[in-house]
C-alpha cells in the first residue's frame, strides 16, 4: 500500500499534436498585469535594500544603490546580531507551529471526512464559523486566558493558539473526502488493519498533497503574523521577525527610524519563504487521486 506514496507521475504525454494555439491576448494581458502588480513592491524592496542611507530618498526609486553589503553588515551588527535571533524565532514559530497544526488538521479532517458519528456536522459547523472569525479578534482573549496559566511571554504562547487552524481542518476534510475513497478504507479494514494503521499507512499518503498545502498556508500565516506575538511577547529575545522589525521602525520621536535596516531585514525575511515554496512546490503537481483506485 505504502508504495502509493509520492511518486510524482511522469509528465503526462501531450494529448496528440495540437494545432498551434493562438495566444489569448486578453487573459495573458490580465495575468501580466497581475504579476506586475505583485512584483513591483518586491522589486522596490530589492532595490531599496541595496541603497545606502543617504541614497535611500535621494536617488531614483527603482535604481539600484551601492550599499547592500554595508546594510547587511549593519543589520548583522545591530545589537549583536539580534536580527538572526528573530529570524530563528520566526523559523521556530512557523516551522513547529505549521507542522503541529498540520498534524491536528490531518487528524481532524480525516475523522470528519471518514467517520459517521453524532454531532459531526455540528462540529464541522462550529469549525466553519471559526474560518470566518479573523484570528485578530481572538488574540486578546487568548492573551487573557494564557495569562491565567502564566504562559504569556513564553514560546508556547505563540505556538498554542496556532495549533488549531479551522481553515486547515476544513481543507483537510474536503481533501480527505475527495482523496481517500471509502472503498479503500473498507478494503483496509477487510485486510485487518486497525483504524490508526489505516490512517497512517493508507489515508495519510493520499492526503499528502493537501497537507503540504495546509503546511504552507500555516507557515506563511505564522511567519507573517504580527498581532498575536505582539500581544503575547514582551521579551525581545523571543520576538519573531515581524515584531523585531517593528521595534526598529518605532524608536521614539527623538531617534530616526532605522529605514535601511528595516528594508534590508524585510528583504532577507522573504528569502526563506521563497526557498520553502521552491522546495515544496513539486508536491503540488500531484493530482487529487494519484495512487488511489482508478475508476
Amino acid at each position: 500500500m505504502t508504495t502509493a506514496r509520492v511518486t510524482p507521475q511522469a509528465p503526462q504525454a501531450p494529448p496528440a499534436p495540437r494545432a498551434p494555439r493562438r495566444v489569448a491576448l486578453l487573459p495573458t494581458a490580465a495575468l501580466l498585469l497581475g504579476a506586475l502588480y505583485c512584483l513591483v513592491p518586491v522589486v522596490w524592496v530589492v532595490m531599496a535594500a541595496t541603497k545606502a542611507g543617504d541614497e535611500l530618498f535621494s536617488t531614483f526609486t527603482l535604481a539600484p544603490g551601492t550599499g547592500l553589503l554595508t546594510n547587511i553588515a549593519d543589520l548583522n551588527a545591530y545589537r549583536d546580531g539580534v536580527y538572526w535571533r528573530w529570524m530563528a524565532n520566526s523559523a521556530l514559530y512557523a516551522g513547529v507551529g505549521a507542522a503541529l497544526s498540520c498534524a491536528v488538521s490531518a487528524l481532524g479532517g480525516y475523522a470528519l471526512a471518514v467517520y459517521r458519528f453524532a454531532g459531526r456536522e455540528a462540529i464541522f459547523g462550529v469549525l466553519l464559523t471559526g474560518v470566518l472569525m479573523p484570528p485578530v479578534i481572538l488574540a486578546v482573549p487568548q492573551y487573557l486566558l494564557l495569562a491565567e496559566v502564566d504562559l504569556t511571554d513564553h514560546y508556547l504562547s505563540v505556538l498554542l493558539p496556532v495549533l488549531l487552524s479551522p481553515y486547515g481542518i476544513y481543507l483537510a476534510r474536503i481533501y480527505a473526502a475527495a482523496a481517500v475513497p471509502s472503498d479503500v478504507v473498507e478494503a483496509a479494514r477487510m485486510d485487518g488493519a486497525g483504524e490508526w494503521r489505516i490512517f497512517r499507512a493508507v489515508a495519510l499518503p493520499m492526503m499528502l498533497p493537501g497537507l503540504v498545502t495546509i503546511f504552507l498556508f500555516q507557515f506563511v500565516a505564522i511567519w507573517n503574523n504580527f498581532l498575536l506575538p505582539f500581544i503575547m511577547l514582551s521579551d525581545d529575545e523571543k520576538f519573531p521577525m515581524t515584531l523585531g522589525l517593528y521595534t526598529l521602525l518605532n524608536q521614539g520621536s527623538n531617534s530616526p527610524a532605522l529605514y535601511t535596516l528595516v528594508i534590508t531585514g524585510s528583504l532577507l525575511a522573504i528569502v526563506p519563504l521563497v526557498a520553502l515554496f521552491l522546495l515544496i512546490q513539486r508536491f503540488w503537481s500531484l493530482d487529487l487521486l494519484s495512487g488511489a483506485v482508478k475508476s
Binding site: 514582551s234 525581545d236 521595534t247 521602525l249 518605532n250 524608536q251 521614539g252 520621536s253
Partner: peptide
C-alpha cells in the same frame, strides 16, 4: 530591559 516599539500600540 525589554525593548518595545514606541507609540500608541
Amino acid at each position: 530591559v525589554k525593548e518595545q516599539a514606541a507609540g500608541d500600540d
